[in-house]
């Protein structure tokens, strides 16, 4: 873990430098990119390591985001914005950390409910079920307007998230995913991906192991939703949609199925690229250009380098740096 602490220290130093020298726009951008990293690394547990195909992250972000937003919302404005909120909740005004934890836990609980029936089945059931979940969550949030203000969304959230918060959670997400990947548990996930039937015959509970991957990912997505809501200070039922799920999947595929390094590198590059294309889109009035380019990246990658940038393994350099255990 000594090497890990060094990496963490370097990351923290970089954050300190950015915090001191970046303007608000760049700070927000850096935070969004790091949140994306948190999303792809946690999604790669299912979609990369276990060989499942989940599109559920936007739904879990919406759940985690709304739960956290309701908990942190200034109590004096709650009566007006969320008239149906029970009295006990209406008087509360929580700090960010417990709100994020409750939001992440709520997302994880929903993941258990969805995953339990669906993860018994092999195939595209999870993709279809999580796609459905995105829509169900959106409809529910729209209709529970006494708590959520429906389609208007909740705005004016306290801006509690900063780069430090995002850095801490992203680091935690990477550490958790790294440890799971480089463990017996992670090997059983890979085994299910590599040969589903043989893995089960070796004593791997497909349901149990898939649930661990899916629910862990959902927890971090829920937290990411809360972080994002308190960064951009607004959340609506449509903020996190299928388009986001698509972008995350592309980043994971481009990075390499199951490679955390790949997911991180691809997420940073593709997030910066799509931000850089925004002024181009506006100048040329070609809205959606970055989506098209992202889709092209995906297709080219699948044709010329189907294993992604790094395949399923971490690059030797990264692996050696982190896995040597200090005595």
């Amino acid at each position: 873990m000594g090497r890990g602490l060094v990496a963490l220290g370097l990351g923290a130093a970089a954050v300190a430098v950015m915090q001191a020298s970046f303007n608000d726009y760049l700070l927000t951008l850096a935070s969004i990119i790091l949140i994306n990293v948190m999303l792809t690394t946690s999604l790669s547990l299912t979609n990369g390591l276990t060989g499942l195909f989940s599109l559920g992250h936007p739904a879990f972000m919406t759940i985690g985001g709304y739960v956290a937003a309701i908990l942190t919302y200034p109590a004096r404005r709650k009566g007006f914005m969320m008239p149906e909120l029970p009295e006990a909740l209406a008087v509360q005004q929580w700090d960010l950390l417990p709100s994020l934890l409750v939001g992440g836990t709520a997302a994880a609980l929903i993941a258990v409910l969805v995953g339990f029936p669906v993860l018994r089945l092999r195939g595209h059931y999870l993709a279809v079920a999580t796609l459905g979940l995105i829509i169900i969550v959106k409809v529910l949030v729209n209709n529970m307007d006494g708590y959520t203000r429906g389609g208007l969304g909740l705005n004016g959230l306290p801006q509690l998230t900063n780069l430090w918060w995002v850095f801490g959670w992203t680091a935690l997400s990477i550490i958790v995913c790294w440890r799971i990947k480089h463990s017996s548990l992670g090997r059983t996930m890979m085994a299910l991906r590599e040969n589903y039937m043989a893995a089960q015959c070796m004593g791997v509970s497909a349901l149990g192991i898939s649930l661990i991957a899916f629910v862990t990912g959902a927890f971090f997505a829920g937290v990411a939703g809360g972080l994002m809501a308190h960064l951009i200070t607004v959340i609506t039922p449509g903020t996190y949609s299928v388009v986001l799920a698509f972008n995350l999947v592309v980043m994971i595929v481009v990075g390499g199925n199951g490679s955390l390094t790949g997911a991180i590198v691809a997420t940073v590059i593709l997030s910066i690229a799509s931000e850089a294309l925004r002024p181009v889109e506006e100048a040329l009035e070609l809205y959606g250009l970055s989506q098209v380019i992202l889709a092209l990246c995906l297709i080219l990658m699948l044709i010329y380098r189907p294993g992604g940038l790094f395949g399923s393994a971490e690059p030797a350099l990264v692996r050696r740096w982190f896995t040597r255990r200090s005595p």
Binding site: S184, L185, R187, T188, M197, M202, G203, V204, G311, S312
Partner: peptide
């Protein structure tokens, strides 16, 4: 044959040992 092709021989065999000797999620994380 149904091996786990993208894993080493050692990792293939280690997978078989998880059931009786593997650590749980909390201990791992």
């Amino acid at each position: 044959i149904r091996l786990f092709p993208d894993m080493t021989v050692h990792e293939n065999v280690m997978t078989g040992l998880h059931m009786r000797h593997g650590a749980g999620l909390a201990a791992t994380v």
